[in-house]
Amino acid sequence: MINVRIPTPLRTLTRDQEVVSATGTTVSEIIDDLQSNYPGIKERICTGNGELHRFLNVYLNDEDIRFRDGTATALNAGDELSIIPAIAGG
């Protein structure tokens, strides 16, 4: 089981839950699992060809998955995924 932190704009799909659990061995599998429990969530996170939306950051524990293998990044039980929209600043 992996915990997934859901950003505010997606919580309407997760019945207001901030953290949900999902199963899978890669980020892609987790997204598919989320989709089966919270229909509609995948098309919010991914573009038509299955890539993550450009303005979304996904972290495995503390690390941006772009520094790992992107959506193919492998996961272990107890990991936490966070989905966070890109943020301005400076």
Binding site: P7, N57, D62, S82, I84, P85, I87, A88, G89, G90
Partner: peptide, 25 residues
């Protein structure tokens, strides 16, 4: 900074504050 930003995104989701670079962006 990117870690600060990520933390702030989580704080902004929980506290009703006006984050100038997040919900007021």
């Amino acid at each position: 900074y990117d870690q600060v930003n990520r933390l702030c995104a989580e704080i902004a989701g929980r506290y009703g504050w006006g984050f100038v670079n997040i919900n007021l962006r």
